[in-house]
Simulated scan of single mutants.
Amino acid sequence: MANSNSNNSNKNSSNNNDNNSKMSYEEAGRKGGEKTARTHDKEFYQEIGEKGGEATSENHDKKFYQEIGAKGGSNSSNSNGSSNSSNSSSSNSSNNNNS
């Protein structure tokens, strides 16, 4: 399965070369995110997270939070009682190592 990911990366790279060396949106986003992570600290992410939370609360009512809370509650635990978010973050970190 790991080979298919590396093959896709190679295909994307060759496609970029075929398109006059234009960068894909995916690659541009990845590079931008990596640079942001290198040039900003934990406080930066806390501040933008707080701003996002404030904007969300201004744009949504109590019912919205009840609905997403119910969805999160039903999807956040598996049979052994651990949360899916920790499982997804470990899979995300393994995906980041492949690039």
Rank of each mutant, 00 (worst) to 15 (best):
N8I: 06
E43G: 07
N97R: 13
F44I: 00
T36A: 14
Y25T: 11
Q66D: 15
N17M: 13
E50W: 04
N7P: 03
I68T: 14
N75F: 09
G33H: 03
N59R: 11
F44S: 00
E43A: 15
S76I: 05
E54A: 14
S76P: 05
K31M: 13
D61K: 07
N19I: 00
G52P: 02
N87G: 11
S21V: 00
N84W: 08
G29L: 14
N92T: 07
S74N: 11
K11H: 10
T36G: 01
N98D: 15
S93H: 09
H40W: 02
S79R: 01
S82F: 03
E34C: 04
M1F: 10
N98L: 13
A37P: 02
M23A: 08
S88T: 08
A70E: 12
S14K: 15
G29Y: 05
K62E: 15
S77V: 12
N5K: 14
G32Y: 02
K51W: 04
S21Y: 08
S14F: 13
N75S: 12
N98T: 10
S90A: 14
S99N: 15
N17Y: 07
G69K: 06
S86R: 11
K35D: 09
N20E: 13
M23F: 02
H40Y: 03
N3Y: 08
G29E: 08
I48M: 11
K51L: 13
H40F: 04
N98W: 00
S14E: 13
K51Q: 13
N96T: 00
N12I: 08
N87I: 10
S93C: 03
S57K: 15
R38D: 12
S57D: 09
N10W: 05
N84V: 05
K71S: 06
M23H: 05
S9P: 01
S85L: 12
G29W: 01
H60V: 03
K63F: 04
N78T: 04
A2M: 10
S76L: 10
F64G: 01
N80R: 06
D41V: 04
G72D: 01
Y45D: 04
N92Q: 10
N3L: 14
N59Y: 04
G81M: 07
E47C: 06
M23V: 07
S89W: 08
E27L: 04
N17T: 06
S13C: 09
T39D: 15
S79E: 12
K11V: 11
Y25G: 10
F64V: 02
E58G: 06
A70I: 03
N75H: 10
A55C: 06
A2H: 00
N8E: 09
N87R: 14
D18L: 14
N92V: 03
S9G: 06
S86V: 11
F64C: 05
R30W: 02
S89V: 01
T36N: 07
K35F: 10
G69V: 05
N19W: 01
S89Y: 09
T39S: 14
M1C: 08
E43T: 07
R30F: 08
F64A: 02
A2K: 11
E67S: 08
N78M: 05
S79G: 09
S83R: 11
N96R: 14
A2I: 08
A28P: 01
S57H: 10
A70H: 06
M1Q: 08
Y45P: 01
N98H: 04
G53V: 03
N8Y: 09
T36W: 03
